[in-house]
Write a protein that binds this DNA or RNA. Structure first.
Length: 275
DNA sequence: AGACAAGCCTGTCCGC
DNA sequence: TGCGGACAGGCTTGTC
């Protein structure tokens, strides 16, 4: 379940393996990702013979910039982007292979195909990239700006925080963690958030994301970085997946409710609708 | 066997 | 009636 910390960990581990390298060969499976048919010609045009210049991240998206354009990449929920030796076994559900020099290749594997690997031409910035909301790690992500965004919607705050057009990068795991850390009830209507709650939430969001990055991501099922390594952050989660177990603060059993068809974990004693 | 997990898109419905 | 926002449903496969 790659969220911002996992995607950032992939970016950091990918960058030294890719930047400056030239892509000699491009292969794409015939299977569609996120309802998009593969465009092998465009992929070859933007990647084959190109040199990788940068790997950027915004929210949960990666942008691999090359001398001929590049690719917009999203890991969906089961996507893996790894650099491996060319002679190693090709795993099932491999959708993209980019041959690099020195017998290595970049592979994109995604069993559930919720992800995205879309080539783009130079100067054609993908729509998804520009539609993203606030960057929660930026200096400009202040309590006031966060509150301003939240006041615009009547949805429960948990659902609002998952909206990538409001804040880019939070997913189901880190949202539960941030709300717990900020002592805010997930069902609180976003438009009623107080200045004090917004201030706690701002800090909590940054704390959980930065901790996630320090621990190299949360590996609950299949998440790995570009070298195939799992993360450690699953050992530090305070509420997510701890249904029925005692709250680390007060001992009350952690509760699970379904919001927006997704499980939400919280402590009914520590997380209040008021204040 | 069937429910479930997840992110994001799309189609539909609701209220102003 | 029109509009935007909210929300349910669909996609997908491995795992329990």
């Amino acid at each position: 379940m790659p969220e911002l910390p996992e995607v950032e960990t992939v970016r950091r581990s990918l960058e030294p393996l890719l930047v400056g390298r030239t892509i000699s060969k491009v292969w794409r499976s015939p299977l569609a990702l996120r309802r998009e048919k593969p465009d092998t010609r465009l992929l070859a045009k933007t990647l084959q013979g190109a040199r990788v210049e940068r790997v950027e991240r915004a929210g949960k998206y990666l942008l691999m910039r090359t001398t001929q354009g590049g690719a917009l990449i999203h890991l969906g929920m089961s996507g893996q982007l790894t650099v491996e030796k060319s002679h190693t076994e090709i795993r099932p559900h491999t959708h993209v292979r980019l041959e690099l020099s020195r017998g290595a290749e970049l592979r994109y594997v995604d069993p559930r195909r919720f992800g995205l690997f879309r080539p783009y031409l130079p100067d054609a910035v993908p729509n998804e990239w520009s539609a993203l909301g606030l960057d929660p790690l930026a200096r400009s992500f202040t309590a006031a700006v966060l509150r301003e965004q939240l006041l615009r919607t009547s949805r429960a705050i948990k659902l609002a925080l998952l909206d990538q057009e409001l804040i880019a990068g939070l997913g189901n795991i880190y949202v539960s963690e941030a709300l717990f850390l900020a002592s805010v009830h997930p069902a609180l209507p976003a438009k009623t958030v107080t200045a004090a709650q917004a201030a706690r939430l701002r800090d909590a969001i940054q704390d959980v994301l930065e901790q996630g990055i320090r621990n190299r991501g949360t590996s609950l099922s299949d998440y790995v970085d570009a070298t195939g390594e799992s993360g450690n952050n699953q050992d530090f989660l305070k509420v997510y997946g701890r249904d029925g177990k005692p709250c680390v603060t007060c001992g009350e059993p952690v509760r699970m409710v379904v919001m927006g068809a997704r499980s939400t974990f919280f402590c009914a004693r520590c997380q209040k609708r008021r204040g």
